[in-house]
Design a protein around this nucleic acid. Structure first.
Lengths: 156, 156
DNA sequence: CACCATTACATCGCACACGATACAATCATG
DNA sequence: CATGATTGTATCGTGTGCGATGTAATGGTG
């Protein structure tokens, strides 16, 4: 994706600029996920599973929809993912006693213990990537703002 | 993903900050893709197919690896995707005469004509999202820089 | 020219993503 | 309290992503 040359049409420039925002987002997200993989693979985790576990380490026990609200994922993605986590033994899935529609997700002892094994991952990644901290901070701030905005647009 | 509270350990703070960068990238990318979908669906296109076509509109004819270098995708993703685009009739796949290993991708007349049908998509999306242009510009600049950096890290 | 390494693409297997739909449990309304 | 709407998960189908591997074509070496 080369930067596109300027044209005589300002409106078109805006379009192209906008058009290009989506791609670095898409590509950078996949590349970063790829960098996580060698750190997660020894633990038998995929990146989305790691995201879900991070949510659980902070909020468990919680329902499938709670996880979905945090991760922006629906049951059609979460149900099979959570079943895998259950089969490996990190979590437990149990129907809520008061509302049988809800499936409550709890961490097993092993799942809780896994957290400490993951605690070095972020620093390892930070070292491996070697990206300036201030740029990462600025980027995170802006991405959080965009994410919030997109969430409101999508849910509208 | 709530912002995490500060802790007594600066090193841990860095970890958490870093840890959180990946998630808004991951979530924002998927949400933005989701917003493209209703605009692409009438044309029978998925978002990755749209990315590949944008590359082709600018660079066709080119090889599978050329597309892969632009989109950061390998043949295991591109081959089936390109076969679908061929079956629909937007592109042609042909082995290079001088090097039979290479598959050259060319646009059909229909594939070229499709470009004009897609030209309104970015503005429609820009209008739908309603995000400040200057923030989008700043974000794109930083994402491009991160993407470049990640590419060099991954290929190293 | 033989032979091994490299390259370019294809195939396989698995795990997401997500729209569409199904289904059971609960809620809301009359 | 009946009953239709809503809610929370699950299932299905399609299309990515990507590590691992296969395979044929090309290139480099002696």
């Amino acid at each position: 994706m080369e930067p596109l040359p300027p044209t005589a049409h300002p409106a078109t420039d805006l379009l192209r600029l906008e058009q290009q925002l989506c791609f670095p987002l898409y590509a950078a997200s996949r590349l970063l996920t790829r960098l996580y993989q060698p750190l997660l693979e020894p633990l038998g985790l995929t990146y989305p599973q790691y995201i879900v576990l991070m949510i659980l380490w902070e909020h468990a026990p919680c329902s499938v929809s709670d996880i979905g609200a945090q991760a922006q994922l629906a049951s059609n993605t979460l149900t099979p993912l959570l079943k895998r986590l259950e089969q490996i033994g990190w979590i437990e899935r149990r129907r809520d006693a008061h509302d049988e529609r809800i499936v409550n997700i709890a961490l097993t002892d092993a799942g809780l213990a896994l957290k400490s094994q993951c605690e070095q991952i972020p620093m390892q990644l930070f070292t491996r990537i070697g990206y300036p901290l201030d740029e990462m901070q600025a980027l995170k701030t802006q991405l959080d703002r965009l994410l919030n905005h997109l969430q409101s647009v999508v849910s509208a």
